[in-house]
Design a protein around this nucleic acid. Structure first.
Lengths: 222, 222
DNA sequence: GTCTATAAAGGGATAGAC
DNA sequence: GTCTATCCCTTTATAGAC
């Protein structure tokens, strides 16, 4: 198990190990097939036979690329964790009124979080985190953790210049993330509602930003 | 599958069907064993052999009580959904300042939600919701749905009498629920932190209540 | 109702040829 | 590296004795 766990790490820049040979097409096909099946049905319910069939390779080929099922799962998870979170659209331009900045960040985050692949990843990671301890840690660090850090830094900065009053930026950032998800994420993760469209995402973000800004605006600010 | 799904419903009052014979001790032992294993390892990774062993009965006995694995799973989930949410401690006395009432409700809810059994139930339901559509619906209605309805009604009432200003009580109630969970639930569900103690629950609730009340207090209120 | 024993199928992983 | 064929184990579910 320790060997499998050690394979869970962020993927190298550019999608391959620096200096290593490019991954073979079969390798990519296996990972793609395994990704679909693991995300769709979970770890235990996905068989190596099914993965080989879907990748159009023999099972022996799968085992020549990955030592065992656990190692393949780890590779899939590591690849996904790094791939789903793209760069933040604001870049260095976190300027403007907090409600504008938070709206842009919130819309980006909520769109990212509610994407079908991201929902499936969260579902599988949560389900298997108890069995593979490293999994939850990598997922959190590359996903929610990065988002929390970014928002938290912004809140601290705005507090320093007296626009916002956020005594505890980190829990406040976590609050903000949960608030934008609030009306959508729970029912969506249970399969009780369809994917939100842009209008609904905008509405949920608007609710959250309005409440958050009202709660944390500095007393003397305009 | 439709037969199995039809067995997912809230358990009858008192724990047994009205007018039916009491459940045999074996029946209860099977359900208890299955509950532990399903919550611990998930549906696919739990075998009927293991359930029978843990219940100290033969596998044949398990199949004499439940038609198949799916039916046993449905019975376990239905039983759990109804059992984990107890009565609200406030009863009819939702009186006092909103921050006090929300603190009491929030503490109760967060304690309930972060209990190990509730966390495991949520994990399993989320993992299997895509495969068993009825599961997510029953879970949501008996759990989060009831909580949202209660808080939402309270917010609407306080808005009607001019203490709070909550134009959309339902999304606001969902926001409140997510806010109290914010610093704890995510890392906890990934196995990255231990169970919160009372002090940490109180702190998380206090953060959420302070922000929520500030965001939604009526302009003219004291 | 309950048990032991077993059937029938599918799982992960491997051997050896090419 | 890749394939076909196979081993061995566990799984769900059932037969038949008591």
């Amino acid at each position: 198990m320790s060997e499998a766990e050690s394979q869970i790490r962020e993927p190298p820049i550019g999608g391959r190990a620096m200096g290593a040979v490019p991954e073979s097409p079969k390798h990519a096909a296996i990972v793609a097939a395994a990704t679909d099946l693991f995300l769709g049905a979970g770890y235990a319910a996905t068989s190596m036979d099914a993965i080989a069939r879907r990748a159009n390779v023999s099972k022996r080929t799968v085992y020549s690329h990955f030592a065992n099922k656990e190692a393949l799962f780890a590779a899939v998870m590591a690849s996904l964790c790094g791939r789903l979170v793209g760069p933040c659209p604001l870049g260095d331009h976190w300027t403007g009124a907090p409600d504008h900045v938070l709206s842009v960040i919130g819309t980006w985050l909520l769109t990212l979080i509610t994407a079908p692949e991201a929902m499936a990843l969260q579902r599988v990671v949560t389900a298997e985190a108890a069995r593979v301890p490293a999994l939850g840690e990598v997922f959190y660090r590359t996903g929610p953790g990065r988002m929390i850090d970014g928002v938290s830094a912004y809140l601290a900065e705005q507090t320093a210049i007296g626009v916002l009053a956020v005594p505890e930026p980190e829990p406040a950032a976590m609050q903000f993330l949960e608030m934008i998800k609030a009306p959508i994420h729970g029912p969506l993760s249970l399969g009780l509602r369809p994917q939100p469209d842009q209008a609904e995402i905008a509405r949920s973000v608007a609710w959250a930003v309005a409440a958050f800004v009202k709660a944390y605006t500095a007393e003397g600010a305009a």
